[in-house]
Structure formats: structure tokens, C-alpha cells
Amino acid sequence: MSPDQLFQLLIAGLTIGSIYALIALGFVVIHNVTGVINLAQGEFAMLGALIAITLTSETPLFHRAFTVNWNLPLFIGIVLATLLVMGVGALVYWIVVRAPRTDSVIIQIIITIGIAITLRGIALITWGTDPFRLPEFSAGPPIQIGSAVLTRQDLWVIGSAFALMALLYLFFQHTFIGTSLRACAVNRTAARLMGINVSYMMLLAFVLSAGIGALAGIVIAPKTFMGYDTGTYLGLKGFVAAIVIGGLSDERGAIVGGLLLGVLEIFAAALISSGYKDAIAFLVLIAVLFVQTTGILRRGAKREAAGV
């Protein structure tokens, strides 16, 4: 395999990997602050993409009962779609954390499964089984590097994913609210004793994760068709990415896990067999878990030992 081919595969892997990384980040933020594994995380991505597509281009809805043609500018469509999905995130917070008459995490996780099924069903009613696609964010010929080709949308995906991660880093490290969120992740009881409104922080975690998920779905929408069931698959991959390196509790682990998973998948598909592409990702995951039962970074083990 020539270096150019290698580079080409690497780019493809990093592109899909940055989407996995963003979704994994959503899992980690919610899990750290609330202890819940939100299995509806992939549905946020699906909703974000489909709403953005509806706002910006001609879309038939409800079995072609009527067609909307709002044609909003792309940027406004993206912002509106993200805000709407963040609203859904707030609703999910209320249903998962506030409403249940229990603290049992298993029950809360099953509730998120129910929410995922419901959101998928609503999307199926609204958009049907047709796949949709967003136009590329900027037109123009692809960029040549040697004989490898980099499409403009690849750049958009990788660029916006990293920009978002950088923004989140600044938010978590250098703002008061971000620090409060981290305090909740370390120890909720202690955070409450320090006067942090933990319920508000949990709400914020859900809203933030919904926003991250929606943006992930939106930036990948020009590269892949989005349908009502795309979210499930994105969510599964994000879940694996979140767990394998950082054990669901480390943001950097989630990002590295996502990128690695993307690259691994693309290489496996190219070198071994595209039919077993997904199996290879999961085999690696299971192999890693067998060697290191709490994710590579082991922060999860320390947290467990501390009884958090």
C-alpha cells in the first residue's frame, strides 16, 4: 500500500472518527454529571441532521402529505436545529432524572432506551424511511495532497469537530459553570455542599450533550445519508468509543477512542473485509476490555474505588 493510499484511508478514518468522538463526548458528559448512560445519544444526532435538512431544503414530510420549503440559509438552519435538539435534551433530562420514582441507574438507562425508541418512531412518522442529505457546506473542487484527495466536507467535519472540542475544553476549564460541572462529575454530594445547584448542572449536561450530538449529526449529513434509523448505529459506535479508552468517564479518552475507532474501521474495511468492518471494531473493543477491564486509562476504576 502506497503512502498516498494510507493517507487517504487515514483521512477517511479521522472524518468518521471525529463524529464518533463527538457522540462519545456526549455520552461522557451526561454519564459524568448524572451517572446515567443515555442510550438516546445517537438519536440526538439523527434529529439534528433531519431538522437541519428540513429547515434548509425542500423536504417532503408525513408520507409526502405536504412539503416544506423554507430554504433558510444553512448557518441559521444549523443553529435552529441545534437549539431545538437542545430543547429535546432538556425534556429527556426531565423524563430520565426528575420524573422517575427511583434512583436506580438501570431503570434510568432503560428509560433512555424507551426515549430512543420513541424518538426513532417520531422521526419515522415525520420523515418516513427516505434517506436525506444536506448539501456540502462549501462548494468547490476537492483538495489534492499528493495523489490523495481531501473533500471540502472532510475538512469541515474534522475542523468543526476539533473546534467544538477546543471550545468545550475552554468551557470546562475556564468558566465558572464549566468548573461546577466538573465538580459534579468528581463528587455530586460535595458539589452540592459547596452550593452548586446539582439539578441545574444535570439539566445543563443533558442540554449540552444534545447540542454536541445534534452538531455531530449535522456536519456528517452531507457525507452520508441520514434516515430515521441512522442514529442508532451512530449511538452504538459512540458508546463503544466512549467506553473503550476512557471507561465512560474521561473526555479525552472519548475523543481518542472515537478517532481510533473511525480509523480502525476504515482500515479494517479496506484491508480485511467490508462485511466484517463492524465486527473488527467490536472484536478490538472486547479484546481491550479483556486485557484491561475498566478501559485503558483506568480512571473508571479509580472512581469506582473512591465510591463515586
Binding site: 424507551g114 426515549i115 420513541t118
Partner: peptide, 13 residues
């Protein structure tokens, strides 16, 4: 599908 999801959520809540 929607009804199944909603009923599941309501029961578990």
C-alpha cells in the same frame, strides 16, 4: 413504535 416507546417510558417512570 412510538406507542411502544411511550408506554415503556411511562411504566418505568
Amino acid at each position: 413504535i412510538v406507542a411502544f416507546g411511550v408506554i415503556l417510558v411511562v411504566i418505568m417512570v
